[in-house]
């Protein structure tokens, strides 16, 4: 009762998605800070290596709903199971991936439970709170921290009165960390027929085309990333040239993706992926809070910008004030010259 729960997503290969393992890693720390257990909710069909995958993250209890009809994800049955289980178990905290699935499911469950939910958190902490109006004190709440209002501010959100405290977090924001390779928990099977009705299956999935992830910027050690300042899809080629040469991947800001310069799966930031490469070469990126939230843990940052006062320059190790049309080809040239 009153534990920390993570809704674990099952991906196309029938295994637990990375984002859920990241959340379990964070959930383990939150549970430890609160002296609670960590529980996982898995809804799917014949999930592979379930226990072997989850226990090392410090999972004490796996709640498992296993039914052919539960994969692929469909809102109503998953929401029915999740809400009913939470009504029984009364979690203190629940975390969901801010994915197509999590962002569809979590709000529906929060509404059903009349619970507070914060989307796309970039940080989660435990702390106390005092209501300024009533003077009422609350201990050890979940601080749900996220950029807000177009990234001009960072807001800390709390849910003082309602439980569970719910949050969604994007893939890559939390670090995936094994807690104890020999950790053992228990598995509790959910009686699916008791939790869902036939009427929960009224929406029919007619067709699905899920592509394997082509781009793996999350795992890349070097990222050459472009913002709106790159100007066009053609100009992005300069970034690809350098990335290919030095063994990196190409990333982009939301503005560059919205501008059609490159694919959405390369988007870095609060609404894209979070990366921690050894080297981040930012080209024509002014550096909104949302973008920085996705890359500010890079070990080294080079900012190439014609504007010497671009906000991103403040967190850069090297600032090259100049046009990327000039700088990128020169980097290519000198890399080739010195690697001989």
């Amino acid at each position: 009762m009153r534990n920390v729960f993570v809704y674990c997503e099952v991906n196309e290969d029938g295994v637990i998605a990375d984002v859920s393992l990241e959340l379990l890693s964070k959930g383990r720390k939150l549970a430890a800070a609160l002296g609670l257990k960590l529980e996982a909710l898995v809804i799917g069909s014949d999930v592979k290596e379930l226990e072997k995958t989850l226990y090392p993250y410090g999972v004490d209890v796996i709640h498992y709903a296993n039914d052919k009809r539960l994969f692929p994800f469909s809102t109503l049955p998953h929401a029915a199971i999740t809400a009913k289980l939470f009504e029984q178990e009364k979690p203190e905290i629940v975390l969901f991936g801010a994915t197509s699935v999590g962002r569809d499911l979590a709000p529906r469950v929060a509404s059903k439970l009349t619970a507070g939910l914060t989307a796309d958190c970039t940080s989660l902490e435990i702390g106390d709170h005092e209501d300024v109006k009533t003077g009422k004190k609350y201990e050890r709440l979940l601080y749900q921290i996220r950029p807000a209002f177009g990234g001009n501010i960072i807001a800390t959100i709390v849910n003082p009165e309602t439980r569970p405290q719910m949050a969604t977090v994007r893939e890559g924001v939390m670090k995936k960390e094994i807690f104890d390779a020999d950790y053992k928990g228990i598995i509790k099977n959910i009686d699916v027929t008791e939790f869902v009705n036939d009427t929960d299956f009224i929406c029919e999935i007619i067709d699905r085309h899920i592509e394997a992830q082509k781009v793996n910027i999350k795992g890349a050690q070097i990222i050459v990333s472009g913002g709106y300042g790159v100007g066009s899809r053609e100009n992005f080629k300069l970034l690809y040239d350098l990335a290919e040469l030095i063994g990196g991947e190409v990333g982009a800001t939301r503005a560059a993706v919205d501008g059609g310069f490159t694919e959405h799966e390369r988007q870095i930031g609060q609404t894209g992926v979070t990366v921690r490469p050894k080297l981040y070469i930012a080209c024509g990126i002014s550096g909104s809070v949302q973008h920085r939230a996705g890359m500010d843990q890079s070990s080294k940052i080079i900012s190439i910008n014609t504007d010497k006062d671009a906000p991103l320059n403040a967190i850069a190790d090297y600032v090259i004030v100049g046009s990327l049309h000039e700088v990128l080809p020169k980097m290519v040239k000198y890399y080739k010259q010195h690697s001989k």
Partner: peptide, 16 residues
Amino acid sequence: SPTKVKKIENVVLAHK
């Protein structure tokens, strides 16, 4: 509204 805004911070960059 179950969610309450505890704190709003203007974004201040720690200069490197």
